[in-house]
Design a protein around this nucleic acid. Sequence first.
DNA 1: TTGTATGCGTTATCAG
DNA 2: CTGATAACGCATACAA
Lengths: 327, 327
Amino acid sequence: MVDIARLAGVSVATVSRALTGSPLVTAETRERIEAAVRQTGYAVNPLARGLRRQEARQILVLVPDIGNPFFSEVLLGIEEEAAARGFSMLVGNTAKDPAREDRHAGQMLTGAVDGLILLNGRLPPRLQRDRDFDGWIVAVSEAIPGGRVPVVGIDNAGAAAAVVAHLAGLGHRRIGHVAGPESNILTHQRLDGYRAGLRAAGLKPASWLIRHGDFTIPSGEAAMTSLLSLPAPPTAVFCSNDEMAIGAIRALRASGHEVPRDVAVAGFDDIQFAGTYEPPLTTIRQPRRRMGAEAMALLGRRITGEPGAGGDVTLPFTLVERRSSVG
Amino acid sequence: MVDIARLAGVSVATVSRALTGSPLVTAETRERIEAAVRQTGYAVNPLARGLRRQEARQILVLVPDIGNPFFSEVLLGIEEEAAARGFSMLVGNTAKDPAREDRHAGQMLTGAVDGLILLNGRLPPRLQRDRDFDGWIVAVSEAIPGGRVPVVGIDNAGAAAAVVAHLAGLGHRRIGHVAGPESNILTHQRLDGYRAGLRAAGLKPASWLIRHGDFTIPSGEAAMTSLLSLPAPPTAVFCSNDEMAIGAIRALRASGHEVPRDVAVAGFDDIQFAGTYEPPLTTIRQPRRRMGAEAMALLGRRITGEPGAGGDVTLPFTLVERRSSVG
DNA sequence: TTGTATGCGTTATCAG
DNA sequence: CTGATAACGCATACAA
């Protein structure tokens, strides 16, 4: 910057002003400075600026598994909105490990990042005690226990109920459910919606039609296999995510059943391969990319202290009817 | 830090030395300082440290599409290795847009990041002219034209040849190929391998058995449809990635062919759903996570100036034989 | 072994 | 409108 100043024949203070778009600079002076910048290829040092301004213009996203397509699509939305707002995106993989969560969360304390987006369903331990950062944390998809963190997501219970309504509308009366892990908030929201959907269709929720998986394909296979061993197996199954639905279909196929003729199957999320699978999967489409973008927008507003920052954001979902349920 | 100094009754310089692990500190003094740190929850400001040391302890990964499972798994490997080495990972989505590439690449020039990992097959324009950063750039999977950047990946030609050998070994004599985009380096490497594999099996490469797609499912469908319209369609098809292989299978199914009975299909990459698809896909498994980790390790060594930094890294691939080819 | 002083590159305050 | 200068938080050369 001192070089630019010399080249343009002004002080560094003026260079700084010109570069930050201050109105206190003559058009002519500004032009000289910009010429010097172009000539030298100079670029402001973000570390120095950040140190001075006490901000980093970076945000951190904590993800349990970057490799999971659901999360990576959310990341895409976050990145685009972040870039549009002049923020860079740091990504930390936590693998649901509290120690890693804390290590990454340390970047909030040190000022390395200005905000935090959580995709992993909970606050890192050290942030649970420390409420100082509450205003700079946003969650996506999965609500954070404690209710301190605003969430950007869909109405999971409503979506689950919509799936059940669809299945019931097809004439099914024994509708099973492959739920997620017990501890997961989404599991409960979707389970509640499943029950509500049954009641709305005049059916009685029965706990023996419910199995818990862990959102993986093998767990969906195991859950379906278990359901099939029932004296009166379900004729339709709503799975809490698409991976488990694919697992369920595999189990059905392995035991000689045809989908949806013998058993209808529905998933949740509309991951990339849901529409390509054989049979294509009936599922709930979540606007993942938009969820990411909205979360970043909300966080950005909070960081820059814009007035209408707002709280929770609920986005619309879509029930996508495909061959796994409607043959 | 000044607080810590006061608390421990030493100067900030000593605190700094203690925190950076300098040997010039009494065990006893160090203990007092560490106690003060624990008590206050103090953490070093990375911006200040970075400004002083002229480093950021951050690296940037440029990805064409974060949402693509292939890339996101590589990211996972990069993140883990980066974290292990004390680096944070910034991710920039380029969508193959040179303007975005340049915007992100600017972080190299400003010193916001210490290194760059390329997953998008080319150098950002502004870095093509400027060779100053050559030592701090590493590519994964896809070689960068110009040969200035070390690549971490597999022997793509060898892998393609292995697939063809497998297909030929099954008795196929008309083996088609659905290649990637013309401009892509991987396309050419795999195309070369395909031809080499044919010759090794005593078959003659024929250009009419080759179609180009763009690595998407629909493009694979279109390519296969086109191949099927041939007077003598191939009895086996090697696709340059799994998405196109899935597209090919869809096209075959749509036109009443059964896989692999009528036509055998093989893909490349072994993405998550390759093994779950119906039929499960014969493909080449790339060690994506490890590729990411090795790339970060290489970059880390270069940044810290370790002696045996090395150049290109070629990792082993695996031919995974599944039902799409061996029925 | 520890303390003092300086500079890393910017921005903001205060004069002019 | 512009310039001089202090301060952001830390690491290091130099003294002690």
